[in-house]
Amino acid sequence: MQDKNDFFRAVRESKDFDKAIEMIPYANFLGVRFSERKDGSLLFRMPFDEKNVGNTALPALHGGVIAGFMENAAVISLMWAMDSTSTPKIIDFNVDYTLSGRAQETYARCDIVKLGRRIANVQVTAYQDDPNKAIAVARSHFKLVRD
């Protein structure tokens, strides 16, 4: 088996980001994808999928899907930042919904506000067409598992 610490290094080099998603069945199920931007930050995306709809009348994405997508983004961002495959343990997740998520691709960017020895604080912004028009913002605490 591949050394745990080498996993993200290998993903980073090969740019085979889907490999990281495959480790998380629920992220794979939601259709979460991510890539590294030029500045080294990660951009997460979740293509529209009929099964993620929460309101067929509008139609709109399920609020739980948006939050689940954002939680996955936060977890992967932390693992990426720490070069670790040990999953950080979520302590709390606080999400504010600012717009309804329309039936289209959704993006998320993460800001690791604090990466402490034991605790991390991550802010996540989810948006669709316009990066400046958030559909949801979240902040979350994680307990870190150091390799």
Binding site: M23, G63, G68
Partner: peptide
């Protein structure tokens, strides 16, 4: 259900599923 798991090594349901359940 298998597709709701967060970490296959533990077999525990993903925290995001709890968010969906709570929202629902």
């Amino acid at each position: 259900a298998e597709h709701l798991v967060g970490d296959p090594t533990s077999g525990i349901i993903h925290g995001g599923v709890i968010l969906s359940l709570m929202d629902s």
